[in-house]
Write a protein that binds this DNA or RNA. Structure first.
Lengths: 161, 161
DNA sequence: CCCATTTCAGAATATTTATACAATATGAAG
DNA sequence: CTTCATATTGTATAAATATTCTGAAATGGG
């Protein structure tokens, strides 16, 4: 409840789940959750996570996670690999589905970005890139990617750590 | 040169084409272009256009256009003035790969959105749309797109390493 | 034309956010 | 165990940004 990483997770969760207008407001919410911080630290946290303040349609300013341009969910998923082994998911992982030469991962709100980062760092040759929304993560595969192999490669990031 | 809409266009152009760190900086650039404004007006303009300030890797805050996942319809003139847009090359470019009817461009962190904007402005008929994340850019190609041709069309906006 | 209404923008200022600085902690290397 | 380096944070404050208040200009009936 008190180390930096858990605080960053908490911020992501709060920002993705409710309207936060100022850093002071976020500060209050975090303190209610038992975190002891100051505005200065929040400023740095938000900078590190690239969370930014943008106007919404009603003229308010809200903090939003990066890449809030939503990636449309793949329509007809033809294959689901969700929790095939019943392992405990990590990073809010919910499901993995393939369609065409893409994979779509659903996560709890706010977690797609962090998971995308981990997947990028796997440096799997058949994963050409990832794009993260708030709770959806699109993975672009190479043309000759093998789905079973991809699933196996992703397992360490999804299940453990 | 002096009405509101032309100013908004000018702001979009500046923000998409170069690094703007503060509203004061943007103010200076606009004044150089012959616009007479103040910081207060810029604050309102940026709010209206949902242009926001985000951290770029290594410490800077930059103003960026809102994330866009624009799928164009009815491609206008056939690559008419495609290369007439005065976009400068983006130095964040890392790699370009094709898969199926898509292309994936990897960039340095934070550069994908700006590059996507430039590519949209190329008005290449075979590029149906782009989706930009932070350091990854997805280009949706028409089914009969010619990869060599696409590469050639993209040359003006990317810098080969 | 005249008045009401709205849009727009500048100056001043309140609010919000970023950072310089100092303190403390952590850990590696000798 | 020291010493040096690095990381993290709070305090205080600087810097940046949003807004209030005001007035000028446009708009639009009647």
């Amino acid at each position: 409840m008190k180390n930096k990483n858990s605080r960053l997770d908490a911020i992501r969760l709060i920002v993705s789940g409710q309207d936060v207008h100022t850093q002071e407001e976020l500060l209050t919410l975090l303190i209610q959750d038992g975190y002891q911080v100051t505005q200065a630290t929040l400023s740095r946290d938000l900078k590190r996570m690239k969370i930014s303040k943008v106007a919404n349609a009603y003229g308010d300013y809200l903090y939003v996670l990066p890449n809030h341009a939503v990636i449309k969910h793949a329509p007809a998923a033809e294959m689901s690999a969700a929790n095939s082994s019943g392992s405990k998911p990590r990073y809010g992982f919910i499901s993995l589905k393939f369609t065409g030469n893409m994979a779509v991962i659903k996560t709890c709100p706010g977690y797609a970005s962090g998971l995308a980062y981990d997947i990028d760092n796997l440096n799997v040759a058949d994963i050409l890139g990832t794009i993260a929304g708030d709770d959806t993560l699109l993975i672009i595969l190479s043309e000759d990617a093998d789905r079973t192999k991809i699933k196996r490669m992703l397992e360490p990031v999804i299940v453990s750590l």
